[in-house]
């Protein structure tokens, strides 16, 4: 038997495109967009969410039969908060500069709607292994959008990728070539993130007309 059955593979692959948490389910935009001005921060944020959602889904799924449904929201919040504290402390210990950049947005993973959404919609009704795959899949779908937005904003806004100069005034910076590109300051300001996501949604929906909303 293969490691992943077809159904399990779909759990991971669906959220990457046609059931993407950000562009289709409209979840988890809250803490995401403010940190996408740099690609590095986006990647770290994506990894943090993959960790929290993957593990959190497993924990909630294991506890699903003993959580009284009336207080489940608080239990879920405590589980996420604990995992996020771990992420925060690890970041502070091993990547201090980055944790300064992300600052409160690491904490805001707690209220990231994707996480609560997946707990409610999936982990409370499915076994640990499937919940784990679902968590990883959704977090990956979220991460893909973050990385795309981060890529374009850093490339067009600062002319760099991961801090390495690509555009801009490259003779001075790279010592190799000149593209004559002027950095577009608009891409750095917060509202640009919204517009980039809007364009991603536009592209995705024109490629797949089934996703178009009625109104």
């Amino acid at each position: 038997m293969a490691l992943l059955s077809k159904k399990d593979t779909n759990l991971i692959l669906d959220p990457l495109a046609d059931n993407n948490p950000i562009t289709i389910q409209v979840l988890g935009i809250c803490s995401a967009l403010a940190i996408t001005a740099e690609l590095k921060a986006s990647v770290v944020m994506a990894l943090a969410v993959i960790f929290v959602l993957g593990l959190g889904n497993v924990v909630i799924s294991l506890m699903r039969n003993i959580i009284p449904s009336k207080i489940r929201i608080i239990v879920q919040l405590i589980v996420v908060a604990t995992l996020v504290i771990i992420v925060d402390q690890v970041l502070k210990a091993f990547a201090y500069e980055l944790s300064k950049t992300l600052a409160v947005f690491v904490g805001l993973i707690i209220t990231n709607c994707i996480i609560m959404g997946r707990f409610e919609a999936f982990a409370l009704g499915n076994g640990p292994w499937r919940s784990f795959l679902d968590g990883i899949g959704n977090a990956l779908g979220y991460g893909v959008i973050l990385v795309i937005v981060g890529f374009f904003r850093e490339l067009l806004g600062s002319g760099t990728l991961f801090g390495y100069p690509v555009f801009g005034d490259p003779i001075a910076k790279t010592g190799l070539y000149s593209t004559g590109y002027e950095n577009n300051g608009f891409m750095i300001i917060p509202p640009a993130a919204l517009i980039v996501v809007g364009i991603i949604i536009w592209v995705q929906r024109s490629r797949n007309p089934d996703l178009v909303e009625e109104n």
Binding site: T23, V26, V197, I201, W202, S206, P209, V212, E214, N215
Partner: peptide
């Protein structure tokens, strides 16, 4: 059409 709803709200 592809911008309706969510897309236009973002922009």
């Amino acid at each position: 059409a592809p911008l309706r709803g969510l897309g236009i709200t973002f922009i």
